[in-house]
C-alpha cells in the first residue's frame, strides 16, 4: 500500500508515493537513490543512518517513511555549501583526520553539524554526549571529537568565516 507524502529534502520540495512498510532509510536509499545514508544495525543502536529532521538528529532506520510528510529532512548529500564547497564540519573532519573506513561518517557529520547548531559553544564532554548515539568501529572517537572541537574553534575565531581552507584530498 502506498501513501502520497510531501516534504522538503535537502532544501527541495518533493512528492513521493511511498510504500507504508518502508523506513525513511529505505525510502531515501531506494526511492531517492541517496545512498550516503548508511544502514548499520537497522534498530536504532548505531546512528549510521542519522539524518536531520526539523533540526533534530534522528535514526532513519526506525522512522517510518510516511512520517516524513510535512517535514524538512537533511541528509549527508545536503550539507555541502551552495557553491559545492564542503561544509565547515566536513572540512574539519578531514583536517583532524577523523575518517577511517567512513561508514559511520555521514551520520557522524550530520550529528556533529546539528550539535554545533544547537550550542553556541561546546565542551569536549558535551561533544561526547552529543555524539553518544553514533558508533564508530574504527577511529576510537578521539579524532572525531577533535574535528568537532576544531569546527567549533574556527567558528569562534571568526563567526563570519563560513568557508574553511579548501582541502586537496589527492596528497
Amino acid at each position: 500500500m502506498k501513501h502520497e507524502i510531501n516534504f522538503t529534502l535537502n532544501g527541495e520540495a518533493v512528492t513521493c508515493a511511498v510504500d507504508i512498510r518502508k523506513s525513511l532509510l529505505e525510502m531515501l536509499r531506494d526511492d531517492f537513490e541517496l545512498t550516503g545514508t548508511k544502514e548499520g544495525c537497522g534498530v536504532g543502536e548505531c546512528g549510521a543512518c542519522s539524518v536531520i529532521i526539523d533540526g533534530r538528529t534522528v535514526d532513519s532506520c526506525i522512522y517510518l517513511a510516511v512520517w516524513a510528510d510535512g517535514k524538512a529532512i537533511t541528509t549527508i548529500e545536503g550539507i555541502a555549501q551552495a557553491d559545492g564547497q564542503l561544509a565547515p564540519i566536513q572540512a574539519a573532519f578531514i583536517e583532524a583526520g577523523a575518517v577511517q573506513c567512513g561508514f559511520c561518517i555521514p551520520g557522524m557529520v550530520l550529528a556533529s553539524d546539528q550539535l554545533l547548531k544547537d550550542h553556541a559553544q561546546l565542551s569536549r564532554a558535551e561533544i561526547r554526549r552529543g555524539l553518544s548515539g553514533n558508533m564508530c568501529r574504527c577511529t576510537g572517537y578521539q579524532k572525531i571529537i577533535d574535528a568537532v572541537q576544531l569546527a567549533d574553534a574556527k567558528r569562534q575565531a571568526d563567526p563570519k568565516t563560513v568557508v574553511l581552507p579548501h582541502f586537496n584530498i589527492e596528497r
Partner: peptide, 9 residues
Amino acid sequence: VGGPQTRHM
C-alpha cells in the same frame, strides 16, 4: 535514556 536520537523520538 539511549542516545540523542532515541531521546528525540
